[in-house]
Every structure is written in structure tokens, then in C-alpha cells.
Design a protein around this nucleic acid. Sequence first.
DNA 1: ATAGGGTTAG
Length: 722
Amino acid sequence: MSSIASQLRTFIFPTPLSVFGKLCSSLPVHLDHLFSSNTNLCSTFYTFDPETYYTYLLEKSVSKNHLNQIHAKLFTNGVENNGFIIAKFIHVCSNLKEISYAHQVFDKFPDPYVFLWNAIIRGYSMHNMFANAIEMYTRMQHAYVSPDSFTFPHVLKACGGLVAIGIGTAVHAQSFRLGFENDVFVQNGLVAFYVKCNKICYAGNVFDGLQDRSVVSWTSIISGHAQNGQPMEALRIFSKMRASNVKPDWINLVSVLRAYSDVEDLEQGRSIHGLVIKVGLEFEPDLRIALTAMYVKCGQVIVAKSLFDQMKIPNVILWNAMLSGFAKNGYADEALELFSEMISKSIQPDAVSVQSAVLASAQLGSLDRARWMHDFVNNSEYKGDIFVSTALIDMYAKCGSVELARQVFNSTVNKDVVVWSAMIVGYGLHGWGREAIELFGIMKQAGVRPNDVTFVGLLTACNHSGLVEEGWKFFLCMKDYGVEPNDQHYSSVVDLLGRAGYIEKAYNFIVNMPIEPTVSVWGALLSACKIYRHVSIGEYAAERLFSLDPLNTGHYVQLSNLYASACIWAGVAKVRVLMREKGLSKDVGYTMIEIDGKLQAFRMGDKSHPRSKEIYNELERLEKRLLESGFVPDTESSLHDLDKEDKEVTLCNHSERLAIAYGLISTPPGITLRITKNLRACANCHLATKLISKLVNRKIVVRDAKRFHHFKNGICSCGDYW
DNA sequence: ATAGGGTTAG
């Protein structure tokens, strides 16, 4: 208050106290209080300067009501045409989101000068009403008012927001004509504009031509590269910035962290954390959020969580970073728990939070949970959000219901290529090849251009449903759409050839691939070798896998299964030794089934369930019926070379069978059983499940580590190839 | 009165 008093003491125009008193009387309550409660202050006023006075009042305004009162007073005081005050007024209107009010006031002003134009353009631009901002700029040009260095940043922000390249380029030219080529604010605005339009090289040209570069200039160009998939270039520019002794501020470091997150370079990310502490910015909340996100993206969920716990500020982006981090790194339960916590703490989830929760639900695999999530979305404001809808399609597909996925898909408006691809991938996951192909046709008719993921979906769909020729055709036509095959496409083709029994062809295909074969490519070949018992090529594929991915237990198990299927027990033993040498043990398999909204997990030989006795009785009954109907256990699929009898016992209490038995005794006849396994289907259980589906007349939907199997009436949708 | 950043689907 004392600073106000000192400001007011410098007034130029004398004014009678009575006028001042009258002005104060109808002011907003808190302003009234400010003046009238301190009569001493009032009595020291012997001058009245309207500009300072209104500036003061406007700065204190917090509502439209305040603005109305001040507006009325402008006329009483006869200052309604004072440009300085009106510009201030418009400025404050904008801050209070009263942009149409601001526009009204602007329109009433005769012959606005540049200060007023800037205020109204700024108002529109700051509230993302970019078209209006540009319209006002155009009107300004028609009124022959010359823009100044304050006009350009606002207009350029609007052009960037609309990706209006043509207009922005014209503005660029205009700024050049008017001689702003060395104005760092204008130039930074241009850099940011070109970045938003994905014209990084234009942005780079402007940046390179800058005489003085502020930290803002550097940040713009760094984030420009980071956001356009060039994190390495971003980091190179950052080191140049460090070399030229520009001190980073927190926004700058946030941009740099984003680049390190993209390259998932934990070491360098940590060193930025060190720098943050060194420059004393470790308590900057948004920088801590960026650090949390960086640790999450580098897979350091625990470190991220501890940073998160230290802050726990109700910032939705912080929570989203943690939420998506959990969801993406396989911590589905933790993600959903955090989501509930968010709601209970009244941190309004946004589309990103909802999307991450949907992603977590997809991982859990529970259809009930999926339905709950879908209901939640339908009752939220994110119902039509395209990101959320895509995630819902993916979720339903991953939770076993292609039909519900399709329903969401049908109700999604303005489908983009990601939505179409999600549905095609969903069909692929379930082996609905014909539907995937049909949808692809409709997509093309709708004028949507397929991309690499669309083809991954198509190829896996063909694979999973045995459409070998169709798959091969899709692979060949990728180039017609300008899509370069990546390792996923190549491994799909290897799968296709393998499925058809062309093991040598698949091998030659790999040898002639234009890219270095990856783990998934060799893995596909090894799987095919296992099915067709092709030992020599299988051994070679396994060798490649062991050198590329030495600690992945799955490859050893696959090779062992290959040996077992060819009755090469020495090979099985060799693999076992190899695993022991590397300190690897077979991943513990488990199967989950959800009954009445409760997920129940079983391990092999599990007896921990309260209804264990009933489960084993049911299992025994099933086993008897299986044998009666001519079931011959496929004992070769075991990793261990045990006596035959032992093997059969071991196999029939595999977790999958326990879950099925539990499902049968817990649900009424005819209900579909939905189970989720963490590993891939074992041959013996697969065979047994086929028969069980026929014997008990139930549909059984199994999600394994790779795909879905729909068992019905003794047949599986995978066609016995997986 | 002006500029830069972070969380997001297949």
C-alpha cells in the first residue's frame, strides 16, 4: 500500500478530494476497502492522474463486475477515449478471459493506434482464438497502422497456432520490410512460428541469422528439433549453447530433458539432473515434472515415483507423467490406483490421464474393468476425444472383445489413420484376417492413407488367420503407398513363410533383407522351425537370438521346445545347462481369470485358492473326460525330460487348466470363459483347451503373450499355429 | 504490453 501511496504522490493534475471520494464510493468492495479504510491515505491526495489511477484499479480487478464498474466510471470521468487507459482496459479484459468485452471496447474507440491494436491481438492470441487475432491484424493493416515489435510476436503465435504458413510468411516479409531483422523478440517469434509449422529448416535459417541470441532463441530451436523427431540435433545445439556461455533457465532445461527422454539416454538425463541442481533450479516445479517424465521414459519408474512423491503437487501434467509412466512400463495396477487417487483428490483428470488409465486397463486384460473404463469415459467430457477413443478400441481388443472394439470404432467420428490402424491391429490380434482386409478396403475408400502400423496390423491379421498369400501381397504393395517396411513387417513375412512351411525361403528372405535382422525376425524364424521341427536352421536362429538378446529366457525355451519336438533330448539338456550358466530360469507361468469382477491368478500346481479342492476335483473330472474322448497328451512340449507319466501329471495342472477348471465351477453353463496368460500357449494345453471347449460346450477366449485364441467347439481360431 | 517448455493413442 505504501508503494501505491508513493506512486499517487507524484500526480500531476490537481483534483478536488470530493471527485476522488465519489469515484471510490461505487468501486468493487475490496477496492473500496483499500481506499476508505485508510482515510489518511485519501487525505494525502491533492492531485488526480487518471492514467495512474485507472492502471491501479485495473490491476486490482479480478472479475467482470469490476470491469463493468470501471468502464462506467471512464465515462463519468470523461476519459473513455484515453488510448492508454483503454489499452490497459483491453489488456486486463483479456487477462480475465473477457475477450468479447475487450472487443466491444476496442470497437468503440475511434482511430485506434498501435498500442490498442496490440492489446486486442494479444487478447485473441493468448486465448488461442488465432483466427480472430489474424483478422484483427489484417484490419490493422487496412487501417494503415504500422505494426511494431510488440505486434509481431502475438500475430506470429496466432499463425503458428493455426499452422498458417502463408500468412506467417507474409508477416515475416512485413517484419523484414519494417526493419525488425535484428529485433530478438520478433525473430524469436519467427523461430517459434516456423517450428510450429514443422518448417525446422526455416526456423534454423532465422536462428542462424540472429545477431543476439537470448536463451529463448536457443530454447525455441532446441525444442523445435526435439518435437520433430530430431532429439540428437536438439542436444547438439544445446551443447553449442553451453559453449557460448548462455545460462540455461528452467524452460530451457525442460526442453533439453524432453530430448533426452526421446533418446532414452539415462546417463545424460542424469547429468542434466546434476546441472539442474548446480544452477539452483531443483525446486522449480515444472522442471521437476520434466525430470520425473525423463526418468519414467528411461524406465526408471521407482526413481520417478520418488521424485513424484516428494512433490505431490496437484498439477495434472505431473500426475499424467507418472500415470503414463506406470502404464507404459507394465505397472497397470499402480497406474489405475494413481488414477483413483487423482479423482479422490479432486485433481481433474484430463484427456491424457483418461487415456493412460485406458492403456493400463488394456494391459490388465479384464473385460469387466474395460467396460467400467468405457462407462467412465462415456460419462466424462472426453467421450469424443480421438486419443481416448483410439485407446478404447485398443483396450477392448486387448481385453478379448473385438466386437466392443468395433462398436467404439463405429461411433468414432473423424477417424484418422491411427483409429483405423488400431481396429485393424485389433482384428490382427484375434486372427480376424478377413475383417481386417475388409476394413482396409473401407479405409482406402474413405481416403485415409495407410501407414506403417496399418501394414503391421494387416500382416499380423493375415498371419494369425493363415492368409499366407494375402499377407504376401500386402507386403509387396507397401511400397505403392510409400511405406518403408521395418523389422516388424519383415518378421511378419518370416512368420508367414514359416507358417506355410517354407523354412528355407524364410531363411533366405532374412539373409537378403535390406535391414539388419532384429530379435523379432530371428524369433519368428525360430518359432517356425519349432512347428516344422527344422533343427539346423532353428539352431542358427537361436544362436543369433542368444547373441542379440542373451538374457531373454523365451529364446532358450523355444529352442528347448524345438529339440523336444524332434526328440533330441541331448539338446534339451544342453539348453538347460546353458540357461544355468547364464543364471536364467524359466519364467514362472501364470494364468488369470476374472470371476465376478475379481481377478484370480493361478500358477502351475497352485493350491492356494480357497476353493482349491473343488478346482482339483473339476480338473480330475475334465481329465477323465478328455482321455475318454481320445485325448493323447502332447508330452513333447515340456522343457523337462521327465518320465512320461510324470510329464502328464505336470502338464495337466498347468496354470491354464486350473483357471479353466475354476471358471467352469464358478460360472453358469454357456458363459464364455476369458483367461489371460503371461507366456505363450503351450501345445499340450492348447490341444486340451480345444477339446474342453467342445466337451463342456463353452467358448474359451485365451490371451497369451502374443495374441488371442478363440476356442469353440473343438477348434481354435489360430489354426494351431502360433 | 511482447517470445521459449513439460503429460497423449495404433
